[in-house]
Design a binder for these strands. Structure first.
Lengths: 217, 217
DNA sequence: TGTACATCAGTGAACGCGCGTTCACTGATGTAC
DNA sequence: TGTACATCAGTGAACGCGCGTTCACTGATGTAC
């Protein structure tokens, strides 16, 4: 599991140096370790840069050879994961022709991704990292692509007549609110409502959201 | 504005002491200051206990005469605000007899409260403070009463036949997901989606949620 | 009514830790001539 | 082919700050006798 860290430590202990061109590889190792620690500890405030360095088998200052500062490191962690998140959503719609079913698949994929990445999800969407300090390009920000994708599908559904007419932006925001809200409620409130099966409500919540926007015959 | 703090500082400077029985009053002042700083700085991690003490016109250790530790202080801030939040929801339904309109009023009140308390809302619902370390009574926790109220109204609507039949718990969770999700998206993503009027979608989102659960004639 | 005492509501100073970050350096690796 | 040099990829030590919390104390306020 920590074999690369051990290798780094062994190299260090034996007085050997990393070869030229190993930089990018170490960068990836740092991102992996930072993400793993983020998952373990629950928030980026609880992950010191020293801990990341130790996990990689390297000293703290060398982190700064690869990232400007701590924020930049964790922003990179999020960016990487968000790319994966976006792919998961796109993959979910592939092979599905019916627009309503596409929306359902999108919602399902969204919720599933959120619930299976309980630590990354809040980092992506809780606004703890001020993303705009790191990118000028808004389109790379968490949420942007997801929302655009959603708007496109909703728009198509309306033009096809399978969705009730309306403002695609508003409808998309509504759907996003519901899936996002459901994910965050499950993640944060799960243990606060003994009598209620929050986890088990996913399909019902999804059906309810779709039900609210389909065209009525 | 800081007159009580000034009074405290003046008392201190003049060598005078607070009278017996002033404890509870200072406790309230501490809560006020902590909340104000929470609003200003955006997160409880960004509010040192010394800053709270300074704002009240007192030294840091005296905070500990009123609260066990920092967590307890901010938990108290949240509890107080959550009581208000609960009252806002209950007040919103008063004088309304139609169940669907009650749901609409609840949702509207929920969203409005969230958007007008942009700093407290995340503290209440983001799970940063492990509430269960401070209370055994789950029913005092943020969210519990709100959800119970919602379930009651939904249940009544189903029995009246104005809402489509289903599991009241699931439907309530769906409504909560939507309002909670919308509030958090607006608070965290507002500036990330230039072309989209997130703020202005409230009524549409609400209508969509209601639309998804009413009985179809 | 006077006096010794307890208590309340703090104060001031310090402890001790952890953290982000910087700085001067090192030594192997690669390159120019 | 040999050698002087630049550079890459780090290291080790320390700086400096801020923070939560504790501890010994103080002096006015109230109370028992």
């Amino acid at each position: 599991m920590t074999s690369t860290a051990d290798r780094n430590r062994a190299r260090r202990a034996s007085g050997r140096r990393a070869r030229r061109g190993d930089g990018p590889q170490l960068r990836e190792e740092i991102l992996d370790a930072a993400e793993r620690l983020l998952i373990e500890r629950g928030s980026m405030d609880a992950v010191p840069i020293r801990a990341v360095a130790t996990a990689v088998g390297v000293t703290a200052p060398s982190i700064y050879l690869h990232f400007d500062d701590k924020d930049a490191l964790f922003f990179a962690v999020c960016t990487r994961r968000f790319t994966e998140f976006g792919s998961a959503l796109i993959t979910a719609t592939e092979g599905i022709t019916d627009t309503v079913e596409q929306l359902q698949a999108l919602g399902r994929a969204y919720i599933q991704y959120g619930l299976t990445h309980p630590e990354q999800y809040p980092v992506l969407f809780s606004g703890h990292i001020d993303a705009r300090q790191h990118t000028d390009d808004v389109s790379t920000l968490p949420g942007y692509q997801a929302l655009q994708l959603l708007i496109d599908v909703v728009d198509r559904g309306m033009r096809e007549g399978v969705l009730a007419p309306g403002d695609p932006n508003h409808v998309a925001v509504g759907l996003w609110s519901m899936t996002h809200g459901y994910v965050t409620l499950v993640l944060t409130q799960k243990d606060h409502h003994p009598g209620i099966d929050l986890d088990g409500a996913a399909e019902a919540v999804l059906a309810q959201a779709i039900h609210g926007i389909v065209a009525r015959s």
